[in-house]
Each structure stands twice: as structure tokens, then as C-alpha cells.
Design a protein around this nucleic acid. Structure first.
Lengths: 393, 393
DNA sequence: AAGCTAAATATATTGCCTGAACAATTATGG
DNA sequence: CCATAATTGTTCAGGCAATATATTTAGCTT
């Protein structure tokens, strides 16, 4: 028969109401009982009981009366409940092919420590790779002055498909081995819960949280660089697809009938190989094209035109299938991509009946770590009442 | 401040538990208290109380002991609670450009009445169009012997984008006017709640319910004909996008750089205009191409090859963005499209790293009405405890 | 100091679930 | 045929969490 659904007992009510109260306090930073009554629809007695409960669990703290009587109010002064942003910490990891960045944030998402590390080579054993990640985590925690024992969750983004359960698509052998090693290693070393996700998906979370997509429920973030990945949010939810490969557009080149040699990175490489612009000699890179184009180099300008059209076609195909409100361009290309926006936007109506707003991410390098932090916070918030908070140091 | 979230009161528990019990009884058709205890985790006392409640509301009925003692069991005979499939009815509408079909189903989704009607012309006023729809509904209800007063919800599919709130995308003026008229008319005439949806989305619901996609949570249904629309389900949820235009792939032609004159319907038209095949003379239609190809006509065979490749490209672009487990081909093309499957399947790996399973819908013409019925049932099931059932006739 | 006001608390009541004791109904085994 | 075991149904005390109402508390005003 069925898996045995949990029965709804009276305790569930308290859980639900406590979640609602906690959510409101988190949003408002500090709230009074009366405010919470209005917000949740509960009675004062219930609100107070819930708050006492949350105080006992360490999620909120009672604030002193503000010495500043900015608002000289009548009546008995209200107790002020504040979210305890230091009840614990979260870690956000951006694990790339060559480097790793770790960010430590408090429970309101303010980043208070950061550290990066590089992998010695592409083919180092999983164990060494894990060591680099672990070191970055510990350095970031130290910089933040945060006790590793108080990390409540770790969000981690990798450049590979990850399904809804956090498993890496098996076809990607390398990542798949690293993944299980990383999770068990961090669990064993520090007791951390690691939430693995695709980096483009985390970029979407980050962009909706603190980028140009705030409040947008139907949002797509293009993480453009060597690889073209999309993080897709529909109705405020991340799309994964069956194997987590939703948004993996590496093959879209072929679909468009122009051959995979026409990808953005490939375009840049061709240009570079052909002698490429004024700054020739360095490795092929998007910033170089943009720099040369800004300097007026016609070859670079031509490349940018082709890139614009390609981006417009890609965005249009996304618009036809997903119909997002907004598409954000992020990743390595983002910094200089602002110049392409007018061209892309102008082309879009030729390719789709529902052109989305197109913007460039303001988050820069931090887009994936921001999303990783948000991902970890989402987990912590969803499981707040099940997580046992470690006592204060 | 916030909208005022509903407080969780003790009554909510009963609602939740009653929903769980009702869901299980619906799934099992008939259940005993002991089964429900195991399934829900509730105590016997609670289960019985919930069942009495549901009987009072009309959703379940108590069955007599089966005269057939197939399972000679010890102990006191258990009361048998059965889902009352005739507590009400739902309507499923497929409203096309030229015709409308209405299906009446009981609460288990068994279709017990059906009727179709045609529109006199394409440009008839909204009022007349509504009249045709209403007539089909009444005829279908009469055929089923169902009282119009006992219709609990109406699912309706139209060939236009419909957003999550059931609003038709404003750019489609014609549909937009019809829409509001239809909803208020059916509300006024019969008191029915009409749930408007895109026809391809309903096709996806239908296919997952009773087609070749049963149990598949990441499913895309292509409704291919004059218009190419996709119904996209991810993680068991329908995707709408910002304006409900998700899956509206009419423009995908252009994205692929082959020009809109290369759409499937357009291909068929070209072929027809060029004199096309043994059965030349009739209107251009997919069945004609398939028939002629089966007869060995080389021109028709060439068209089918091009259609196969086009379908493969479309499916591949879907696979790259959504990564569904399965793609189902439905609509006018479906009946004969089985022959194309091997070709499409063989082409897919060239275009995408995550090729989905591809099947042809077994539902034929009924794919949209099936989905419309499912959509209405979903609504009824989600709101069962809020809906007041009309007493028995 | 008396009075006003909003917040907090105290008390009673209700809805819902649990758990245990008890009653009902059937099959089985002597 | 009767006792026993097994299974289901019923009843009632107890606990949790919510509401409603009355009362107390804390600060400000006059």
C-alpha cells in the first residue's frame, strides 16, 4: 500500500503557526505581538505562546525596549520579537572546474566571510578536490568568526546536471564520483548537510533573491561562458526535469541547424584563432572580445553581432517554451554584455511572440554563491522547526 | 503588510485528515477502517469520525457487506466505505476553432455522455459561439442522464494561451472576448465554475492520466496540427509561464533559422499546392500525406522525412530546456504518426544529450476532453471539503 | 494620584486526536 | 455446542492547541 502519510495531529497546528510567525518575523526583522496577530490571524494568546516557543528553540530573541521613543505610543509597551540572525550560519559553495569559492552567511543571508581556492590540475583525484573545497570552507568560516559546528546547511553549485534529489546525472562520471565523496566527507568532517545543485539553477535563485530578478516568479538565468547553462524558474520553482538536465543547452547549437561550431565560446575561439583583435596573444576570452570591440576593432564587432543574434535566438526559443517574464544574462559574459542588450532586445520580437524582458546580472562572480546561500537558507527555513540549533558559543 | 495568512485552527486538522482519507478511498474505491488507519496513520476512532463526516457530506457511502465471502476472515466484519462516484459530475470541454466537444464524467472520471457541435462560421459573434458550447453541454448531460444542477466543475480547453489565473492572453483579442463571455454565461445559466486552460496543457493532463504517460511526472505533449502547441508538465505540475504562453511554439520555426514556411502544416500545404500525391484534389491534410506515403508516393515520403527531422529538432530543443522523461505526440497528426516514431527516435541523439522517450498518444480525438475532465476533477478533489454537494435527485 | 490605553495574562470552552478499556461479531478448535 | 482468538467498533478520559472573554499590567497623560 501507500507509504503511510503522516497523520495531522494537534502538534501540527503549532508547527504551521510557528512557521508562519517565524516567516513574518524574519521578513520584518522585529515584530510585536499585535503585528503578528494581524499578519497571521491568530489570537494574541496564541501568538505569544508561539513566540515563547520560538524563543525556547533559539530562533527568535526578545529585544529590549528601544531607548529611543521615536514613536511615543500610548498604552503598555509591546514586547519586541526579533529574528535571531546568529542562531546559526549557512555556507554557499561555487565549485567550478578550476576554482572553488565558499561564502559564509548569517541567517538573514548577509555574507560575512568568503574564501577561494584553486585546483592544482583538472585531473586531480576526488580526495584532493574535496580537500580544496574543505579548506575554502574553513577559511571562510574563520574569516567570518563562525564556529563550524553552527553551520546549519551547505548549498553547493556544480557545473553539471543535478536532479531533484541532489544526485548528479550518472553520465557525468567525473562529477558523479566527486559528488558523493563531497557530501559524505563534509558530513563526516563537520556534520554538515550538503545540498547539491546545478550552478545555473543556483544562479537563478541568486538573481531572484538579490539580482535584477527580485520578485519575478517566471525567471530564466543564462549562465553563459564556455558552457551555456540556463537556470529556469517557473512560478517561483526551479525546474529540474527528469534527470536534472533542464536548461543544459549545450546541444542547442545543433537544434538551431547552425552546427555546434557556432556556440558563443566557439565563436570567440574562432576569432581568437584567426588572429583576433588588438589584444591578440592572450587566451580566447569573452572580455577580450568586448574590450577589442569597444576599441573599435571591426572583427570583434562582427563577432558581437553574431553573438547578439545567437543570444536572441536562444532567448526566443526559451520564450516560446517557457514564456518567462524576464531573462537574465549572467556568468563570465555578463560584465560586458550590457552593450549587447539593446541589440538583443530589438531582435527578439522577430523570433518570438512573447519576448521577455532581458537584463544583465549585477551580481558578477558572486551569482552562484549568492544562489547557493539562498538555497541553503531555503532549506533551513523550510526545516527550521525540525533542526536543533546548537547552543550559543 | 502581508495579505493575512489564514491561521491554522483545530478544524484545519480535520480538513487535512479528511482529505487524506477521501483520497485513499477514492484510490481504492472501497476501503475499511483498518486499511485507512494503516494508510493515514490515524487512530481508529479518528478514522471512523472522519468517515462519518464524509458520509454526512455525501462524498462517501457505506456499502453493505459483500454477500460474497471471497475472503473468509475472522473477526467482526469491517464497515466498508466506498467513494460516491455519483455525488456529482464534471464537464470537460474541447473548444476548437471550428467545433466543440463536451464530455460528462462521474467523479471517478468515467465518461458517461458526450456531444459535439460545430460553429456556423469562423467569425460568428461570441454570443452565438457560447450558444453552441452550451448546447453541446446540455446534450451531453442529457445523454448521460445527469442533472445540470449537479455539475461540480467544468474544465475547458481552448487553442490559446491561458495564464495561471485562467485569463486568456490579451493579445489574442478574439479568444479573450469569448472567454469572459463563456465563463459568465455558464455561471449565470447553470451556476457552473468554468476552469479555462490551454488545450495542449489539458492534453498533457489527459495523457498523464489515461494515455501513454501514466505515472510520468516530467512529460511533454505535442499537440501538432495547424498550430504546434506543447503542454509541459514538470514534476507533475503544468507549466504556464508568465502569460500562459509556455509551449506556444508557433514561432519556433524562425528560431531554427529555417523560416516559418517550414512548419509542419506549411510543409503539407506546399506539398498539396505542388500537386501532391495520388489523392490530390482534397484539402491539404496530414492524413492525406500519410496515406499517400503508405501508398509509396515518393513526394509524400520525402515530406514525411522532413517532418520527422523537424519533429526531432523540436523535441530535442524541448529536451535541452526541460529534460522530460517522455514526449507524446498527439493531435491531428497522431493517428498516423506512429510510422514516424522510429525515424524520430533514431535522430534524437544527434540533437540532444538527454533524449526523451517518444510515443504517440492513444487517446485520439478525446485527448483534450480527457484532460479537461481531469482538470475539473483536480479542482473538485482539491476543493472537496469546501464544495457543497447538491442532495441526491 | 487618577485615568486612559494598549499589551499581556488568566480562565473557561471547544475541536481534534490519542490511548486504553470495553463491546460486538465472526472463525476456529476442541 | 462452547470457549477462545481475532478483528472491528464504541466510549471516555486526557492532552494539545486554538478561541473568547475577563482581568491585570505597564507606561503615558492630565
Amino acid at each position: 500500500m501507500m507509504p503511510h502519510a503522516a497523520a495531522a495531529t494537534p502538534q501540527l497546528l503549532r508547527r504551521v503557526n510557528a512557521q508562519a510567525v517565524l516567516r513574518h518575523i524574519r521578513g520584518a526583522d522585529v515584530a510585536t505581538g499585535t503585528e503578528l496577530m494581524a499578519l497571521t490571524g491568530l489570537t494574541r494568546a496564541s501568538v505569544i505562546a508561539v513566540c515563547e516557543d520560538l524563543i525556547g528553540r533559539g530562533w527568535i530573541v526578545e529585544q529590549d525596549q528601544p531607548a529611543d521613543p521615536a514613536s511615543p505610543r500610548k498604552g503598555r509597551p509591546a514586547r519586541r520579537f526579533a529574528f535571531n540572525r546568529e542562531a546559526g550560519f549557512v555556507l554557499g559553495l561555487d565549485i567550478g572546474a578550476a576554482t572553488t569559492t565558499a561564502a559564509v552567511a548569517d541567517l538573514r543571508g548577509t555574507v560575512i566571510g568568503r574564501s577561494s581556492g584553486s585546483f592544482r590540475a583538472a585531473d586531480i583525484p576526488a580526495q584532493e578536490r574535496i580537500g580544496v573545497v574543505d579548506l575554502a570552507c574553513r577559511e571562510a568560516l574563520e574569516a567570518a568568526g563562525a564556529d563550524p559546528g553552527r553551520v546549519l546547511a551547505v548549498g553547493a553549485g556544480i557545473a553539471a546536471p543535478v536532479d531533484r534529489e541532489g544526485n548528479v546525472l550518472v553520465t557525468q562520471r567525473f562529477w558523479s564520483l566527486f559528488d558523493v565523496g563531497l557530501r559524505s566527507a563534509l558530513k563526516e568532517l563537520h556534520g554538515w548537510t550538503v545540498l547539491l545543485e546545478n550552478d545555473a539553477n543556483l544562479a537563478a535563485l541568486g538573481e531572484r533573491w538579490r539580482g535584477s530578478g527580485v520578485g519575478v516568479d517566471d525567471l530564466v538565468v543564462l549562465l553563459a561562458g564556455e558552457r551555456l547553462g540556463a537556470g529556469v524558474m517557473e512560478s517561483g520553482r526551479l525546474l529540474h526535469g527528469r534527470g536534472g538536465a533542464a536548461g543544459e543547452m549545450g546541444y542547442l547549437d545543433m537544434v538551431e541547424g547552425v552546427g555546434s561550431s557556432d556556440g558563443i565560446a566557439a565563436l570567440v575561439r574562432q576569432w581568437s584563432a584567426a588572429g583576433g583583435g588588438p589584444s591578440a596573444g592572450g587566451p580566447a576570452s569573452a572580455p577580450r572580445v568586448f574590450a577589442d570591440a569597444a576599441a573599435g576593432d571591426p572583427a570583434a564587432l562582427a563577432i558581437l553581432d553574431r553573438i547578439s543574434e545567437r543570444m536572441a535566438r536562444v532567448i526566443a526559443s526559451i520564450a516560446s517554451l517557457i514564456n518567462p517574464e524576464q531573462v537574465v544574462i549572467g556568468g563570465a559574459v555578463a560584465e560586458s554584455a550590457g552593450a549587447l542588450l539593446p541589440g538583443i532586445t530589438a531582435l527578439l520580437p522577430r523570433f518570438t511572440a512573447t519576448p521577455p524582458r532581458v537584463t544583465v546580472s549585477p551580481l558578477g562572480d558572486a551569482i552562484v554563491t549568492a544562489g547557493a546561500v539562498r538555497h541553503a537558507l531555503d532549506y533551513v527555513e523550510a526545516n527550521a522547526l525540525e533542526l536543533a540549533l546548537p547552543g550559543p558559543a
